[in-house]
Design a protein around this nucleic acid. Sequence first.
RNA 1: GCUGCUGUAGCUCAGUGGUAGAGCGCGUCCUUGGUAAGGACGAGGUCAUGGGUUCAAAUCCCAUCAGCAGCUCCA
Length: 673
Amino acid sequence: MTIVKLPDGSLKEFDSTVSVKDVAKSIGSRLAKDALWGEIDMQPVELDYEIPQGEPVNLKIITKKDPNALATMRHSCAHVMARAVMRIKPGVQLAFGPTIDGGFYYDVECDEPLTEEDFPAIEKEMAKIIALDEPFERLERPRSDAIQVCKDLSQDFKVEHIETGLAEDDSLSFYQQGEFLDLCRGPHIPSPRRIGAFKLLSIAGAYWKGDQSREQLQRLYATAFFTQAELDAHLELLEEAKKRDHRVLGKRLGLFHIDEMVGQGLVLWTPKGSFVRQKLQDFISEHLQRQGYDQVFTPHIGKLDLYKTSGHFPYYQDSQYTPLVDREYLSQLAEEGCTCGELANLMNEGEIEGYLLKPMNCPHHIRLFASEQRSYRDLPIRLSEFGTVYRWEQSGEIGGLTRVRGFTQDDAHLFVTQEQLGEELIGCIELVKIIFGAMGMEDYTVRVGLRDPDSSKYVGDPENWDLAEQACREAAQTLGKEFSEDPGEAAFYGPKIDFVVKDCIGRKWQLGTVQVDYNLPERFGLEYVGSDNKPHRPIMIHRAPFGSMERFIGVLIEHFAGSFPLWLAPEQGRILTVSDKSEEYGKRVESQMRNGGIRVKGDYRSEKLGAKIRDGQLEMIPYMMIVGPRDAENGTVSIRDRIDGDLGAIPVEEAIAKFQTEIADKTVRRKSS
RNA sequence: GCUGCUGUAGCUCAGUGGUAGAGCGCGUCCUUGGUAAGGACGAGGUCAUGGGUUCAAAUCCCAUCAGCAGCUCCA
């Protein structure tokens, strides 16, 4: 008698010996077909495994739908990959080899570095290993034995990991497949037969345990699927994603340029890109005005004293452009025979006079606040500026519009009383909500950064912190969207709310941010006169709903795949003449459209209509207005929509009205796919 | 900053130790065509920069700069 207990708690009894497959069949033919392997008392077994008779066993039948099935298979594939690498390159040290979104990796250290040229050989070896069809066998070892096993294998990283990361574990598990033995928590698939299709993707450096001061390993990225078709579809998806990369589209659509001669991470906005940026600024400005913000302008540099007071210099020196040293100060130093090394030391200690390219706008705004006597009646004071800041980002981090060295924040600083904090935070959140709403961006996450209660690194009164954190939570709730609360993620000066989106290849970027600050008002000694006629310290809110114009537009290009909504499109429409004969009418339509406030251009080249349409389509022009003799006669344009294609002929006035409505409504139209 | 890869015409990319090619784009001409590429001819390159090896380097080596992927970082 075989007794099987299924995950739902039900029991099944069989008179004779049955395999996992037989049990699946008894439940349903569909399950039998979809079954990949079984798990008996948590241990993976093959479908033809014969279930022991007697005592009831817990059986789970794993199908593709099981959320862990793919990850388990990929992890087993990682073992196969590591085994293949060890066969090809002797003396390989293994580190970690986990599963990640879309695949897996294994960190290794080789005497002689691996390159992508080694991929075919590794893949071939993997195929051989899979063909051997050896099972993954689990072994449990007490910790002292486990250390010895890893030492015998000369796997130093594994030894270290057992001694540090796994210091609490009394017993450790290994998985063995043929000659390959690896410290591993598991689980694994019963046999490599379930690895359907795999592919090595890329190779990159990675630090052991993510620590920059430790060994740098080689990380082999790869992926695997149950079927070749799924792998192909995945690879195609990756290719598609690359096409919407804002760096590719930015070049193709002529939105921005980054020039070697100007400098790394310094964006030159072309007329088209500038247009989009300006439109976005105008858009948010309307809402700032409505919310009672005051627009200000401040210079791009400030004296070092300003940043010494704010605490940014010399503390954050590494991420700033080198200061512009005061001319007289420099010549004085020169007279005193100061060497370069001494100058650098002075700079490190902050003992230097000069100016700094501003890494943030707050100190300037703070000095504006402090420039007048303030009463509680004046508060809240909301100073906004599209302020350009410069930060010396690490060279390896810079790329496209999403990480740059000079960028413009849609910045503002609110000086508020404790009582006003909550309401003002809600106002800030509303702006973010308006922006994401207008762009049709749903796919973002919200993080509320709270202080770590055990830490003493935070400035400000703990009671105020509690109030501010609560205010942040409540403000975040007004989004009507889930948010995470992250203790320890607050800045040392106050809690914050961050808005994060992913780019086309899955990298996460912070866009909007709202931060409470108890620190700077203190450092600058800011005050207002309260109703009690006594001085009080205001609280500051830093906020930037876009984050930075550069990063936001970078993400926006990918979000729209280059097809901006009509109100944002630099070129909203294009007049296409069927032949030269219609040029005069085309020009008339063009000026009619312009007078109606529509941004149009005319394509009067002696090309065939099909070619002009193709060009317009590739340039993602929202509307093409085709004009030929028929239209000239009837006073119409034949509209071709970027999304829906030919819409037929309508009178010019009607077309203008249609566009005006779409612009005024800021409609986001997307391909319904 | 670190590791690996890459750098050839405006763009996308071929290419060999013996001093450069395609497609697109651009210019001129022909074509006058109603919803995704009409044709011909032509112009355009210190093969990223600086060294080195060699009779000979765009090709091999080194350095620098820049780009890409990842790691680390991001007040």
